[in-house]
Amino acid sequence: MTTLNILWNDLVATPRNVRKVKTGIESLAASMASEDGQIQNLVVIAREDGKYEVIVGERRRRAAVHNVKTKVWGRDATLRCELRDGKNATSISYAENAEREDMHPADAIRAFATLRDEGFTEEAIANRYLYDLAEVRKTLALAALSPKVINALAANRIDVACAQAFTLTDDHKRQERILKRYRTAHEVRRALTETKVTTGHRLFSFVGMDAYQAAGGTITGDLFSPKGEGYADDPDLVQRLVDEKLDTGVE
């Protein structure tokens, strides 16, 4: 690892930085302009055109730009940077940002999607960042949502609970149609399950999971149900099995 002082104008944002949702940088700019100066190094990778992509420290880069443009700093200002190999850029960015409480949920979701696309398995992500495997699985389920749903989360048009409700279908077009009409978890969940019956319903409990699936019934799982419940996709089959069981007098 090499440490360099790099001219502010030679530092550029990178799409590989997992933090996409921007927040204000004025207070950070003021802090960096104080006598304490830059406390943490940026992490960068070199580009062929002589510029450096900022993998960790994008807010610090933008704060530096702010200080130069407001003439708090001169145009010869430099930032202290650690030069890294570009192969693990997304992993490095996520590891640094995950430790900070103000990371937006949409950024974490997108980062997990990138890690998955780069070949990381659920187990590998869990082991690398010391997460529970079930939580990794849930975040990857959110990462599989339509980009329009994730963008709505990033823009705070919906909350995390609402995004979780969208995972009840993997049909992006359907997700996007529902997104145009509903903005709460209750509304989305109701729209996606209005033709289904919960596995916690008394009729389904009477039939039982084994009998339902043996008859060809399918289940839509709900990773985010606090009781681990899902939805039976064929309520007519549930009712038929209830009737048959009552007719035969089976308890």
Rank of each mutant, 00 (worst) to 15 (best):
V160P: 12
F112C: 05
T199E: 08
F204I: 11
L179C: 02
L7D: 13
K22F: 10
D233H: 09
M32T: 11
R16D: 04
T220V: 06
Y94I: 11
L140K: 02
E82G: 10
D233P: 09
D222S: 07
A232M: 04
Q40T: 15
D210W: 14
L115N: 00
I45M: 06
D233G: 11
A143Y: 05
R80P: 00
R60L: 15
L28H: 03
A29P: 01
R100Y: 09
T2I: 14
R157T: 12
L142N: 04
A214G: 07
V18M: 07
I55W: 00
N9F: 13
F206I: 04
E35V: 15
W73M: 03
V136S: 09
L142V: 11
K227I: 15
T199P: 04
R240T: 06
L140T: 07
L42G: 01
R137C: 15
C81D: 00
S146K: 03
V250S: 13
I178G: 01
E176V: 02
L140A: 00
D170Y: 15
D85M: 06
Q213R: 10
K173G: 06
I219W: 01
G228P: 05
K71C: 06
H66N: 11
N88I: 08
P105Q: 05
Y212Q: 08
A106P: 06
R177E: 11
T114E: 00
T90W: 08
Q213W: 08
R157I: 09
K148Y: 06
E101N: 15
A29N: 01
D233I: 08
D102A: 10
D49R: 09
L168G: 12
V44N: 02
A185P: 02
A161L: 14
M209W: 14
G50Y: 05
N88H: 08
T139K: 05
D132K: 12
G249H: 09
L133F: 15
A30E: 13
R183V: 11
L133S: 15
A165T: 07
K196R: 10
L7K: 14
L223E: 09
A111L: 02
K87Q: 02
F120T: 03
I109T: 10
A165D: 06
S34T: 09
F224A: 08
T70Y: 04
R75E: 07
R80Y: 00
A191C: 02
I178E: 07
E48Y: 11
H66T: 09
E96T: 13
Y231P: 01
V207N: 03
R16C: 10
M1T: 13
A154C: 03
A165Y: 01
L246K: 10
C81V: 01
T198M: 10
V136A: 12
T218E: 04
T218Y: 06
R128T: 11
V250Q: 15
E99Q: 14
V238K: 03
